[in-house]
């Protein structure tokens, strides 16, 4: 049975998060011939709305307000609730991003709805959508269905492929007036920390360092390698605990769970705690001087050697090949 699905787009620093387009592709699958309605919130949206159409949405509803210039749970929930009331969709999809994780449960509570978080794949089973999501940080998986009410889910970035951008597509864009009231959260400042600007959760290449890095200053060689590959730098808990880097970089069961195309593990042992956060990466490379290190058990390719010798040479080799 065809359904109407609402996709909440997300813009960061003036650009779409790719997961918004991935969510449109997922929504088309769930809609099963029904309508996919994109929605975008912000102070001024302009031409950006049309991008959602080029990636597969049938039309887009925007909510513009100076109170939506920055994300706040209350502002976004009010705006999204108004869009839901107007459109009355049978499903809602968002990216499992900082915003998606924060607003979706609040909106689900307001709508008295279920919510499946952090979905990595989905299938249709006799008209019912079955979502797959990791549990125990990827040590296991579960399949979930919605028992009653909205088909409401957040999708992990970089797992469900987006559709090709199609310039020939067209669709309507309309603006919905919503009066945003009683905002109590005041955002004072946002301090950008991500050195390379590539977000860990959406990076297609991650270079991660462990205790073997021996010091904060040595992360420079990982940054250089990541830069050549257009990737992001991560770290094991051991490296964070040793204060080689910020906890924001931590990958593992406590920390971020990532699924890049290429994961290069440098000087990290592969403790179960860390592996839970990265074992579902498509290709894993391990560089470690200890041939017995656990990380080699899950790596597709391994180099046993001194990372301070291997990593700079690897960076140079990538530079040669990728020019």
């Amino acid at each position: 049975m065809s359904k109407k699905i609402l996709v909440v787009g997300e813009i960061r620093d003036g650009e779409f998060r790719n997961v918004s387009f991935e969510a449109i592709a997922a929504a088309k699958q769930i809609a099963d011939g029904g309508e996919v309605v994109g929605t975008l919130l912000g102070e001024t949206i302009g031409d950006l709305a049309n991008e959602m159409i080029l990636y597969g949405a049938d039309r887009v509803v925007t909510v513009e307000s100076d109170k939506l210039a920055q994300y706040t749970p209350e502002g976004y929930t009010q705006a999204l609730h108004a869009v839901v009331e107007k459109e009355n969709p049978e499903g809602i999809l968002l990216g499992h991003t900082s915003i998606g994780r924060d607003v979706a449960p609040k909106l689900a509570s307001r709508l008295k709805s279920g919510l499946v978080s952090d979905v990595v794949s989905m299938e249709n089973d006799q008209g019912e959508t079955v979502f797959t999501r990791p549990i125990y940080s990827g040590k296991a998986f579960e399949k979930k269905v919605i028992e009653s009410g909205l088909v409401f889910a957040t999708l992990r970035p970089n797992n469900i492929p987006a559709l090709e951008r199609d310039e020939s597509r067209s669709g309507g864009t309309e603006s919905l007036d919503v009066e945003i009231k009683d905002l109590q959260t005041i955002i004072k400042e946002v301090v950008k920390n991500t050195a390379s600007g590539v977000d860990l959760s959406e990076a297609s290449v991650i270079v991660a360092g462990g205790r073997g890095m021996k010091g904060e200053e040595n992360f420079a060689i990982l940054n250089e390698l990541a830069d050549v590959l257009g990737g992001a730098v991560g770290a094991s808990r051991g490296a964070c605990d040793a204060e080689y880097c910020d906890y924001a970089l931590q990958i593992g069961q406590t920390g971020k769970v990532v699924t890049p195309d290429l994961y290069i593990a440098v000087g990290l042992s592969g403790a179960i705690q860390h592996v839970a956060g990265m074992s579902n990466s498509k290709v894993i490379v391990a560089i470690n001087k200890d041939p017995e290190a656990e990380i080699f058990q899950i790596a597709d390719y391994g180099i046993v050697g001194d990372l301070f010798d291997v990593v700079p040479k690897l960076t140079d080799e990538f530079k040669k090949v990728l020019v």
């Binding site: 279920g114 998986f141 399949k143």
Partner: peptide, 10 residues
Amino acid sequence: KTKTVEKYLP
């Protein structure tokens, strides 16, 4: 509101 239909190991 949601139901787990299967759990499995990768």
